[in-house]
Design a protein around this nucleic acid. Structure first.
Lengths: 218, 218
DNA sequence: TAGATTGTTAATCGATTAACAATC
DNA sequence: TAGATTGTTAATCGATTAACAATC
């Protein structure tokens, strides 16, 4: 395997797509062998990119033949770490939190939710997706009992840093942050910001310029 | 302004961050002037990158001084197109749809929701975020009456392509797709895929390799 | 063998960063 | 003037794509 530091970030973001597609191929389409052309074609990724991405981690195919779907799925799963279970807590039991708790796709990726918390007393005790909402004061206990390493923040922007601090204090090592704010964390903690506003605004940007071009074109 | 085609995609994704930060600066912190160093510092972006991003669209600052917060906010708003109102429909009134409808931040970006639809008869008539869920059969009517150009898909994967087809048929020109599948659309329609699984899996990837490194390090 | 497909090197393309003259 | 900061060019860095020998 190549030096891990030198692997493009973009490659790491494509691996989950390969993984999900291979799972579909294996379990729903009964395909045994797939070429980089097939796999890429289904995802809108050039075959040469597929091969390059995989090549950072080893040799998984057979020249002249392609990739064994089952083997490659297992290999990519191991590369990603989704062959293990990652216990996770979520703080912020609003609609977005609820949506993430219910989303079945994450379990397939090794994520196991062991606690949902909220600061709002009126929400405590409610069940969402089969899990009972608990007080944020129980975080320490929940994290250590389950050895949780992953935390999801779906609280309002103002509360996000405070929640992150508590998560880190409890032992969380990776944070998925949906609040549109930058979190300050120690360097051994990984943060991923999921800023949904970027999505809608980038679409508006494209619509807007298309409109301007059309008006000008007349 | 530079040839728009040559502007980096990454620049376009940073503009919403500048815009939101400038809004905060203007309305909550009463700051009048900001330097690229200040603005970048708040967002974790190098000052030279901030200046370069803005420079694609014109000259907005004063040498030796910085940028006028109010002016720059307005300029960036115009660049993005968020100074106009973009009528939008959403299909899929599940938890994620509900979360997006309730999210207040999008209105500030010019998005105005004019219809929420679902195929599930039992959901029709429910109110979510002050908007009544309607039958998907009304899409044509809703889109043309409101001249909606933006569509959000939060239905299960299997239904996504079908919903996209109906949206395009009705006149929708940009689609924000939360279903983890590639949509096939005509070239005058813009699609943005918001694949949430990538977020959690990339965090798992980092945790997983950190763990492997630690085990090896011993 | 002929056709298909991988894995990898080299070339190209795209994005970020450094450096600095211009200017307040 | 001296210090600060922009806008832009050139250099660097990073990611994608093309080309092709190796091999089934």
């Amino acid at each position: 395997m190549k030096d891990r530091e030198s692997i493009p970030k973009a490659t790491i973001e494509r691996l989950p797509l390969y993984y999900r597609c291979l799972d579909k191929l294996a379990n729903f389409e009964d395909v045994d062998v797939v070429s980089s052309k097939d796999l890429g074609g289904r995802l809108g990724i050039p075959p040469t990119q597929v091969r390059k991405d995989l090549s950072y981690y080893g040799e998984f195919g057979r020249r002249g033949v392609g990739y064994d779907v089952f083997d490659l799925k297992r290999s990519v799963g191991r590369i990603l770490g989704v062959d293990e279970v990652w216990t996770t807590i979520l703080v912020g039991a609003g609609n977005l939190g609820r949506a993430l708790v219910d989303y079945k796709g994450f379990e397939k990726m090794g994520m196991k939710l062991v606690g949902v918390m909220d600061a709002d007393l009126s929400k405590i005790g409610n069940k969402i997706g089969g899990v009972e909402v608990q007080s944020i004061k129980k975080m320490d206990e929940i994290v250590s009992e389950n050895d949780a390493k992953l935390g999801i923040i779906t609280v309002p922007t103002d509360a996000a840093q405070e929640v992150a601090d508590e998560m880190i204090e409890s032992g969380i090592k990776a944070i998925w942050n949906f609040a549109p704010t930058r979190l300050h964390v120690p360097e051994d903690v990984t943060v991923r910001n999921e800023d949904l506003a970027i999505g809608i605004v980038s679409l508006i940007y494209h619509l807007s310029w298309k409109k301007r071009d059309e008006e000008e074109g007349k």
